[in-house]
Design a protein around this nucleic acid. Structure first.
Lengths: 252, 252
DNA sequence: ATGCCTGAATTGGTCAGGCCAGTTGACCAG
DNA sequence: CTGGTCAACTGGCCTGACCAATTCAGGCAT
C-alpha cells in the first residue's frame, strides 16, 4: 500500500534483511554471523554498507560485535523494532502500560524517601508546567522533568535514565503526529492536576497513595489518548508531508 | 591502575561527543549539523567513521538524516550523558537496585497472567542455564532469557525491551572486568536456584511470592557481587564500599 | 606427553578518494 | 512577477587498502 520511499537507503534494507534472518531463527542466538566481507559479497553490497547495517543492529541490541572475533547474535526478539513498522496505537498503549508498571513502583519507593528538597524540586516542575500549558514543547519538557524528578528522589541514576528513556519513546514520528491531535492546554491541565495528586501523596509519605495516584495518572493519559484519536483515525495513516518537515517550526 | 585500555571504537566516541553537544544545547533542537565532510575534518576522523556515528544517533532517535539536505537535531536526550564516566561499583549497585524495583513489579504482574506455555518457556531457559553453568557466555544468555521471559509473560514489548536493556547495562567493559572475578559455576548455580523459586511462584500464581522471590534473587546477586570483590578491592576504590547513595543529591 | 609460546590467518576498525543521486536555492527566460 | 532550469551543496554508496585485535595451529622447551 503506502510504502515510504524512505526505504531507499540501502543499509536499512540490509539491516532489515539480517534482522529478519535473526527473527526467523535462520541465524540462531549465539551463532556467529558470516564475516563482514562475506556478508557484503552475499548481499551484493559493499562492506561499508554492511557495517552500517550491523551498527544499526548493534545499537538495537540484536547483535554483539567483537573486534577481531566476529559478530554474534545476542537475541532474536523482534519486539525491539525501533518504531519502523509498529502500530502507533498499540505502541502507545503498550508504552503507557509499561510506564504504569515501572513508574508506579518508583513512586511507591519515592514516597518513603522524599525530603523537603525533593518536594521543592517537584513543585518547581509543577509551577513551570502550569505556566506553559500553551507551549507544546515546553510543557512536554516539564512533564518529563516531573516524571524523572520522581525517579531522582530514589537517588538512582539508572532509574532516572530508564524513566527518561521510556518517556522519550513517545517521541517517534508516528506518536508525535498522533499526539499533536489530542494534546492541548485542556488535557495538559488535567495531567497537571494528576501530577499534583502524585506530588501530594509523595510529600505525605503515602507509598500506597503515590502508587495509586501514578497509576490513575497514566490510566487517564491512556484514556485521553484513546478517546481523542478515535475520531481522527480514519485516514491519518499516511506519512507526514509538508505539514511539519522539522520539529518546532510552528510551535514556539 | 591499569588503564582500562578503553579500546572503544572510534565511531562510538564520535557519537558520544556529538550526543554531548546535543545534550548541552550546543547543538539546538531543529538545528542542522555541519555536513559529514566538515564534521570529519573538525573531529579529525574519516567520513565513514562520522557516518557510522551519525547512524548510531539516528537509530537512537536523536537526529534525523535527510538525504541531500542535511542532518537535523530531533531532540536532546540529556539522560544518556552519564554513560561515559561512571563508577563501576556504584553503577553495579545502582543497576541491581533499579532492576529490583522494576523486575519485582514485572514478576508480580506476571504471576497473575502466566499460562502453562509461559511456564514451559521459563523451564526451557532454566534447563538450558543448568547445562551451561561452565560457559560464561552461554549462561549469561540463559540468565538474560529468563528475565526477559518473565517480562514476556506480561505481553508487553516495551517491558521486554526495557528489561533486556537494563540487563545489558552490565555489559560495560568495567562491569565485565569486575564480573569475571566473581562469576563462576558456583554462583551461577545459586542464581539458578533462585530462578527456580521465582518460576515456581509465578507458576503458582502467587504474585506476592513472585515479587519476594525476585527481590531475594537480586538482593543475593548484589550480595555475591559485593562479597566477591571485597578482596580484590584493596586499594582500587574506597567510596564504593559504603554505598547508600544520598537522596536528592543528583550528581552534577 | 604436557604446557607454554609464537606467528600466521582471520576478522573487525579505520582511512582515503571517488562517483552518484537527491535537495536546495539562486538565476534567467517568459 | 512567475515558472522552470541549473549548479552548488549534501548524503548514499562504492573500491581498495592498511591497521589492530582475536584466534588457533604448530613448534619449542620442559
Amino acid at each position: 500500500m503506502f510504502s515510504p520511499v524512505e526505504s531507499r537507503r540501502l543499509y536499512r534494507q540490509v539491516a532489515d534483511q539480517i534482522r529478519l534472518m535473526i527473527a526467523s531463527g535462520e541465524l540462531a542466538v549465539g551463532q556467529r554471523l558470516p564475516a563482514e566481507r562475506d556478508l557484503a559479497e552475499q548481499l551484493s553490497v559493499s562492506r561499508p554498507t554492511v557495517r552500517e547495517a550491523l551498527i544499526v543492529l548493534e545499537v538495537e541490541g540484536l547483535v554483539n560485535i567483537r573486534m577481531g572475533s566476529g559478530i554474534y547474535v545476542v537475541r532474536q526478539h523482534a519486539a525491539t523494532v525501533t518504531g519502523a513498522e509498529r502500530e502507533p496505537v498499540e505502541g502507545a498503549f503498550e508504552l503507557l502500560q509499561a510506564r504504569a508498571l515501572i513508574e508506579c513502583a518508583i513512586a511507591e519507593e519515592a514516597a518513603g524517601r522524599a525530603t523537603p528538597d525533593d518536594i521543592a524540586l517537584l513543585d518547581e516542575t509543577l509551577t513551570r508546567m502550569g505556566g506553559v500549558v500553551n507551549d507544546a514543547i515546553a510543557v512536554l519538557d516539564a512533564d518529563r522533568a516531573f516524571h524523572t524528578g520522581i525517579a531522582a528522589i530514589v537517588g538512582n541514576a539508572t532509574l532516572i535514565r530508564v524513566t527518561g528513556e521510556i518517556f522519550d519513546m513517545r517521541m517517534t514520528p508516528y506518536f508525535a503526529r498522533l499526539a499533536s491531535h489530542f494534546e492541548g492546554p485542556t488535557t495538559w491541565r488535567s495531567a497537571l492536576d494528576e501530577h499534583r495528586a502524585i506530588r501530594d501523596a509523595i510529600a505525605a509519605g503515602d507509598a500506597a497513595g503515590a502508587k495509586a495516584a501514578m497509576r490513575a495518572h497514566l490510566t487517564m493519559s491512556q484514556k485521553r489518548f484513546s478517546e481523542s484519536f478515535g475520531e481522527e483515525f480514519s485516514e491519518e495513516e499516511e506519512r507526514g508531508r509538508d505539514k511539519r518537515p522539522a520539529k518546532g517550526t510552528t510551535k514556539t
